[in-house]
Design a protein around this nucleic acid. Structure first.
Lengths: 192, 192
DNA sequence: CCCTTTGTTGGTCGATCGACCAACAAAGCC
DNA sequence: GGCTTTGTTGGTCGATCGACCAACAAAGGG
């Protein structure tokens, strides 16, 4: 258990945050190991020694991403008093996140690697699994409050809205513009 | 005007369609020149001689894409008797396209290059411009039929839905599942 | 104080990237 | 039938990709 051997000169948590910044800016395939090594302040050999590989590092980055940027929308969905309020708050928390001035304006889970070279299929599948998890969280929150016959449709609909919002933010839409979209999306709730 | 010099051995239209297939499958950065040369049945030097560069080829590919895959939703938007019908038909035509069994299940304009390396910024901007054009076409179709105060919001909302549908299709959603999303999205229309 | 353990440094690996060139081939023009 | 024009072939360019290794450095254990 004791700290044998030469101590690490970098802080893994800090390095992971720095890697997140780079991946967030350029996506998975758009980020090279030299980009990462430079941003993290270490050599690529240290990345391999501690994180395993580019893909291994990315998976840990996405874990950090889910625990930080992903948490507010998840909490909003969980804490909403009614199902309607939960969805509304989740959409607004999402809009807050993807227009945050200190970060790139999109959700990594959705746009960090939707397409790409054949050899990176596993990364795309990993992100697709995360998106499916998003759908399931929404579906579970609504399970007790909407008619079972419409549960899948409504859950998928609001998942679709979240994903569309990410593209909108990527294209420069402001927080206020996303709010108008959310207003339209919530109008559908009242009609269902 | 006359055909001087050695005649071309490949048909540019056919080669462009073959390039479209490859770019569609792997996105912009995920496709290499050797991928393209192999699929088009020519050497990379011929690509440079006729299409200029990888980016030049991609722009011509997107022009073909817009004129083929992009046309049905555009026509549906144009030909709808009422604004509501036009939007509804456009969404359904989009769903038809992005679940077409012979093509990858997503819209290239939206997901072929949302993120990537710094040096390909021009390509991303090119696609972002195309997405903005999509928004403007929707907005123009609605201009005479919805209250001016809500025109921007509703146009942006349905643009958002289209973009979300593309992510859904990419993740394996079926045509029937997309139809349920469209039903929800159209419910918002009646409430506005 | 040496030995083991762990981490970093600097370099290198084969492969591939987008881009392009010189040499050759095939047509029309005069 | 040369000459010009155009397109293709085969090869190569420097750069970079992800991955990894041998040598060295810094700690604790005995």
């Amino acid at each position: 258990m004791a700290t044998r051997g030469r101590p690490r000169t970098f802080d893994p948590d800090i390095a992971l945050r720095q890697a997140l910044d780079v991946f967030w800016e350029r996506g998975y395939e758009g980020t090279s190991l030299s980009d990462l090594a430079e941003a993290m302040g270490i050599r690529s050999a240290s990345i391999y020694a501690y994180f395993g590989s580019k893909e291994g590092l990315f998976r840990q980055v996405m874990s950090l991403y889910g625990a930080t940027a992903g948490e507010p929308p998840r909490r909003a969905l969980r804490d909403g008093a009614t199902a309607r309020e939960a969805i509304h708050a989740m959409l607004r928390a999402t809009a807050d996140q993807i227009t945050h001035p200190e970060h790139p304006h999109y959700c990594m889970l959705i746009l960090a690697a939707p397409t790409g070279a054949v050899e990176n299929h596993a990364v795309r599948q990993f992100l697709a699994d995360g998106r499916h998890g998003m759908y399931e969280e929404i579906r579970e929150r609504l399970a007790d409050d909407v008619p079972p016959a419409r549960l899948d449709a409504i859950a998928r609909y609001y998942t679709t809205v979240v994903q569309g919002l990410s593209v909108q933010a990527r294209d420069g839409a402001t927080r206020a513009e996303l709010e108008t979209v959310i207003t339209c999306a919530m109008a559908a709730w009242d009609a269902l």
